[in-house]
C-alpha cells in the first residue's frame, strides 16, 4: 500500500471537498488523514467539507480519524463540516457513545458550503444514502 489515498481532495472555490466513496479500510483512512491535512496546509483553505453520504457504517476508528482531521484542520485555521451522515449510521454512533461534539455537521454539501458563504451551483446532493 502506498501512503497516498485514492480519495480525491477537490478545491471548491476556496473550500476543500472530500467525498468518501464506500468502504474505507483502516490504512486508507490513515492515509486520507495525512493527505487531507496536507491539502489544508498547502491551500490555506478556511473550510473542509467531508461528505460521508456513501458510508453505510462509521466505527470508532473512523470516527477518531474524522475527529482528528477536524482537530488538525482547526490548528491550521480551517473549519471542518461533516456532511450527509445516514440515519442508521447516526443512531449507531450515538449508541456507541460517539456524538462527535467538536465537529460541525450539515445535511448537504450545498448547505455546508453556504455556511462558509460559498454558493454552489448544484442541486442538493444527499448522496445515495437516502435510506
Amino acid at each position: 500500500m502506498t501512503s497516498s489515498s485514492t480519495i480525491p481532495v477537490l478545491d471548491l472555490g476556496g473550500l476543500l471537498l472530500v467525498s468518501i466513496q464506500g468502504e474505507l479500510p483502516d490504512d486508507a483512512a490513515v492515509s486520507l488523514q495525512k493527505d487531507v491535512t496536507a491539502a489544508v496546509a498547502n491551500t490555506g483553505s478556511r473550510g473542509l467539507i467531508i461528505d460521508i453520504s456513501a458510508l453505510d457504517m462509521v466505527d470508532s476508528f473512523l470516527a477518531r480519524v474524522l475527529a482528528e482531521v477536524a482537530a488538525s484542520s482547526r490548528l491550521l485555521a480551517a473549519r471542518t463540516v461533516l456532511v450527509g451522515m445516514r440515519p442508521a449510521v447516526a443512531i449507531t454512533l450515538v449508541e456507541l457513545g460517539l456524538s462527535l461534539p467538536g465537529m460541525d455537521t450539515a445535511r448537504t454539501v450545498t448547505e455546508a458550503a453556504a455556511s462558509f458563504g460559498v454558493t454552489i451551483e448544484q442541486t442538493d446532493r444527499p448522496g445515495r444514502g437516502t435510506s
Partner: peptide, 29 residues
Amino acid sequence: QQVRALAQRTGFGLVQQTKLVTAASELAR
C-alpha cells in the same frame, strides 16, 4: 461485509444491521 450480508438475509432492518456491523468492526479490530 459478511456480517452485513448475513444480517440482510436474516431479515435485519437497516438500523439493526448497521449496529451489528459496527459492533463486529470494533470487536474484529
